[in-house]
């Protein structure tokens, strides 16, 4: 595995030239000092940012262990007192949370697969294959996400009702197998367009057909982008509230996002339980992201014909 990290190697080599000069040692020393100074600054910036980014998670975690009345206190109470571990048990007590987990996994998994598969195929078509109307169709594709959802919600609902899909997972899955949405198609198109065409041309000369070229040459080179699509798609479906809200009726079919919102009522919200449920819904996302990012961000980078 090769990394594409620019700073280190380059600087090192530039300094080799400098080392040959008169005050070699002192220059090297000061360079090292300067480098460790910048390194320290880098870590400080990273750390400061990390604190800001982590506040919500820490708050969420700590709130999920608090008494109902202790969440929005001032001055903030970071360590729960008393600890209410039973918040988590209460969530399971009040609703079939495991069932919601399973439903969410099914919907997310099925929709994600379809979205990644179909978006990568369609995007390749828009990026690399010439056909009449390509530009216009691409604009149509983008145009479909320019209509705000409130005004298409009811017609779409009626459509799914006629298909007999209400209270099933079909409206939450099937459309994503057909194109996967403008955002992802556009994203992958940009990544394909950025590839050097040499490899693909060479394969074509060797007699490979377009689908093989797409599958064997283009797709592997855009692995990081596919990873991004998978992550976004996962989060989109995992946290989707409106889709399940509109299409699912039977409480046993609910997803996690709906379950979490069941704690919000007429006038009062059971914030501690809502937070506990949120933690349980969020942790898998964080773990999955932490594991997955290693694979897709530091994926193999093709460096061209060898």
């Amino acid at each position: 595995m090769r990394r594409t990290i620019l700073s280190e190697a380059g600087e090192g080599r530039a300094l080799e030239g400098a080392a040959a000069q008169k005050y070699a040692r002192s220059t090297e020393w000061s360079a090292r000092l300067r480098r460790s100074f910048w390194r320290a600054v880098q870590y400080l910036v990273l750390l400061a940012g990390a604190v800001v980014m982590l506040v919500p998670l820490v708050w969420l975690l700590s709130s999920s262990f608090k008494d109902q009345g202790h969440i929005f206190l001032f001055p903030p109470q970071w360590i729960p007192n008393p600890w209410r571990l039973d918040n988590y048990l209460k969530v399971f007590d009040q609703m079939p949370f495991l069932r919601y987990y399973w439903n969410t996994i099914v919907v997310t998994g099925a929709a994600l697969l379809g979205q990644v598969a179909s978006a990568s195929v369609v995007a390749y078509g828009f990026a690399r294959i010439r056909f009449p109307g390509r530009g216009a169709l691409f604009m149509v594709l983008l145009a479909t996400i320019m209509i705000p959802y409130p005004v298409t919600l009811i017609p779409t609902f009626i459509l799914f009702r006629y298909l007999g899909w209400l209270d099933t997972f079909a409206p939450l899955i099937v459309p994503y197998w057909l194109g996967g949405g403008a955002f992802f198609i556009f994203l992958l198109r940009q990544f394909y367009l950025r590839l050097s065409p040499e490899l693909e041309d060479a394969a074509r000369i060797d007699g490979a057909n377009t689908f093989t070229i797409f599958l064997r040459i283009a797709l592997p080179q855009t692995k990081p982008a596919l990873g991004v699509v998978a992550v976004f798609s996962f989060l989109g479906h995992w946290n989707d509230f409106l889709g399940p809200l509109i299409y699912l009726n039977t409480p046993d079919n609910y997803t996690l996002a709906l379950g979490i919102n069941l704690f919000r009522g007429f006038h009062t919200t059971q914030w501690n339980l809502l937070m506990a449920a949120s933690v349980m819904a969020t942790l898998p996302c964080i773990l999955l992201f932490a594991v997955a990012q290693r694979y897709f961000i530091q994926g193999i980078v093709f460096t061209g014909v060898k």
């Binding site: 609902f157 009702r161 919000r264």
Partner: peptide, 23 residues
């Protein structure tokens, strides 16, 4: 009995009603 989220309750109710599939 259908317990629903309080958030956007009426939005869903209207949508269902307009689609002829309400409670």
């Amino acid at each position: 009995v259908q317990v629903r989220p309080g958030q956007d309750y009426f939005t869903k109710l209207q949508t269902q009603f307009a689609g002829g599939a309400g409670p």
